[in-house]
Design a protein around this nucleic acid. Structure first.
Lengths: 235, 235
DNA sequence: CGATTCTTTTCTGTATACAATTTGTATTTT
DNA sequence: AAAATACAAATTGTATACAGAAAAGAATCG
């Protein structure tokens, strides 16, 4: 059982990634080098290398002479997200259908099993991470080094945005999650059949569903209170 | 005149970037930490941080317990490049036309001036770098954090592929460079006018020209020698 | 002579110590 | 009392020293 520096470094990386994807580490959070190096038994040198790497992948922002910070999410970035996601997701799934290997398809099926399990009995964090894993595998399948950087960057914020809607608050939202799961199954089938057109269409459908889910959160049903009626006082 | 560590670090970063874009540092080249830290008056710690950053941006590949290496370019990556570039370039120019600020438009004009100067009197390196700079500014204009990672990754290899065809070997290739310059002017005009559709169309035209130029290099005119005739001996 | 093992050397990865910068606090000044 | 300044504490950035892993070379065996 090796617990050397290498594995501790990987642990730290995973810890930060998961924390950021699940919003446990919220956008804008400052990271304390001293505390983290202490907690993971690493000196600051390798720790800072991990920071640089995660910054390169879009998890963190680095500012000279200031602490590393979990990358921000603002309304402008949300707009950019909506613009870029459909295009990149479509291209990735199309390429995945072209290039997926047997082993990758098996990995995708495993990811989907985990996603279903998370829907049945998991927390919001479990669902977001399982969904992230599913799409991450489709990225691997595409194998296109030029599209992956943007795709992975999108997946980070998709998970973070999704953390709000994987905690379903209405029946409609719950139905949407079941639909997403069915779409995952269809995506697997399209990839396995090498059906590019179907994969691209499913990417669009899947994205539209995801967008609807986001809209349900951003624009909830209006409160059922007559105009002018007093609202309950804030604490 | 500050020559402190910070500027030396930036110098090193620039040196490596330029070297990689111009193929002075060829794909697959191993980088020697000891030599570089000596040459730039930096210790290995900040040097390795620069390596990590450049790896994140796609300039370098890092392998544990092995030297950092200039990122490879193979025929498979060339195929991926041709698949991804038209889509991403189009989206970036469309967004650039939407969002460009006055200062950015001025920067783009400056870059184009430099490009023209490089065409008139510069080396192949100068031309590739000036062209890279021009497109880099369009990326800044788009301002979309989700598309930029892929766009910047594409620009790296576009510069490297281009290094072969910015050394024009035929009249046709020279004409293409002039045409590229005219397209740059048209791109500036479309962006300045906020004309998205025109910008997107120009992205397609510009890409097609670039692809033609690459094809001229990959598939040169057949040698004008009758079949079976003896070729001049290699040295 | 070739292949293999062992030793030496070189290079990568990490820890620690120190320098430099920023931030928070107390003091002074208007 | 508010603003400005000076000082102290905390934090980031860098250099150096050392530990560990590959690579290169020497010695041994078939």
């Amino acid at each position: 059982m090796k617990d050397d520096a290498k594995s501790r470094k990987a642990e730290l990386t995973e810890h930060l990634k998961v924390g950021i994807l699940t919003l446990r580490l919220q956008p804008g959070t400052d990271l304390d080098e001293a505390h983290l190096s202490d907690a993971f038994g690493l000196s600051r040198t390798p720790l800072r290398e991990v920071f640089r790497q995660l910054a390169g992948e879009g998890y963190l922002d680095l500012r000279t002479n200031r602490s590393a910070r979990v990358s921000e999410m603002s309304y402008t970035t949300l707009r950019d997200f909506f613009l870029a996601a459909p295009m990149v997701y479509g291209a990735i799934l199309r390429l995945a259908a072209q290039n997926a290997t047997r082993a990758q398809i098996d990995a995708l099926k495993d990811a989907q099993q985990a996603f279903k399990a998370a829907l049945r009995a998991g927390s919001a964090e479990d669902r977001a991470l399982a969904n992230n894993r599913f799409h991450d595998v489709t990225g691997e399948m595409s194998g296109n080094v030029y599209l992956l950087p943007s795709f992975n960057r999108l997946l980070i914020d998709h998970a973070r945005i999704g953390m709000t809607f994987y905690r379903p608050q209405t029946t409609k939202m719950t139905e949407n999650l079941s639909e997403a799961s069915r779409q995952h199954d269809a995506i697997i089938a399209a990839i396995e059949a090498g059906n590019e057109a179907a994969a691209a269409q499913l990417a669009e459908d899947h994205w539209n569903l995801s967008r609807d889910q986001i809209e349900l959160f951003v624009m909830p049903d209006a409160l059922d209170v007559p105009m002018g009626a007093p609202l309950s006082k804030p604490a």
